[in-house]
């Protein structure tokens, strides 16, 4: 099937996005230095460990890797992939930037949507992508997320969403701002229909995405060490002149202040999300 080709690792870096068979160490393989423990490991070893360091540090993943890692094998069917950003304001340089990003990266927008199974349970899923213009939300992202919630509501499916975003895409101006209201409306209708929405906040989730669908889940989980917030930390530091707490806007901070249900490392996400889906399934055992 076409979508299976799409899911195949695009390049060496993407291989091993899921927990895979042991990888043979070949001489001269590139190594990756962990910003947390400062040790370096072969790229393949990190990738086969859910793209996390043995010390627990979570490296970022692109949407394709994330889907490969979280969804049951071959279960992902992409939806709405024909939707692309327009340039509604004719903003200087935006069209060119979109073309460059699309060409170099291959992804068409900062979110991938579809249906999938996670540990055997059927769901709708969206995965944002920080490698596409920092996961910023413009009209295409807003439209795809909205369509997904409408699709899920019509078929009575839960939605699982992985957020990562620098915020609204300023090159689309007011159009991008309005996507916050539009997506929130779709989430509300899905919610009012009695359906489950789980968000997993990944590094970084900020700005207009935090202030809309990222914070609207019935269950909100966060990856360890992710930055999650509304205003940018540097902006806060500059405007207040205060030094920020050590864990400021990290998952641990979000949990402590009551804005996430739990912090879940990648190695436990699949099982937990699968279980949560089962516990909310409409045909659950009486």
């Amino acid at each position: 099937m076409a979508f299976m080709n799409f899911l195949k690792p695009n390049n060496k870096l993407e291989k091993g996005g899921r927990a895979a068979a042991p990888v043979q160490q070949d001489e001269g393989e590139p190594e990756k230095v962990c910003p947390n423990c400062h040790k370096s490991y072969p790229v393949s070893r990190i990738l086969s460990n859910n793209n996390t360091c043995p010390c627990g540090y979570h490296f970022r993943m692109n949407a394709r890797q994330r889907i490969h890692f979280i969804c049951d094998e071959d279960s992902f069917a992409e939806l709405f992939d024909d939707i692309k950003s327009a340039d509604p304001l004719k903003f200087p340089g935006y069209k060119k930037k979109l073309a460059t990003v699309s060409a170099s990266y291959g992804g068409k927008e900062a979110v991938m949507c579809g249906t999938a199974r996670i540990d055997g349970s059927e769901c709708c899923i969206f995965v944002m992508d920080s490698y596409f213009m920092m996961g910023s939300m413009g009209t295409a992202v807003g439209e795809k997320i909205t369509l997904l919630f409408e699709y899920a509501k019509d078929r009575r499916l839960p939605v699982v969403g992985f957020t990562v975003s620098g915020g609204a895409r300023m090159q689309e101006g007011l159009y991008s701002l309005m996507q916050m209201a539009k997506t929130s409306g779709a989430v509300k209708r899905h919610s009012d229909a009695g359906l489950l929405y789980i968000t997993i906040l990944t590094d970084p989730t900020t700005g207009g995405v935090t202030a809309s669908f990222a914070m609207e889940g019935d269950i909100i989980l966060a990856e360890p060490g992710a930055t999650v917030g509304f205003a940018g930390a540097r902006v806060i530091e500059q405007t207040t002149g205060k030094s920020l707490p050590k864990d400021f806007q990290k998952s641990e901070f979000i949990l402590k202040h009551g804005f996430a249900d739990d912090i879940v490392p990648r190695s436990k996400q699949k099982q937990m999300i699968g279980n949560l889906l089962k516990m909310h399934s409409e045909v659950s055992i009486i």
Partner: peptide
Amino acid sequence: CGIGAEERGQGEAIAR
């Protein structure tokens, strides 16, 4: 834009 606003969930308040 401030530390307290983030601690008390500015994003969550707007989203809600």
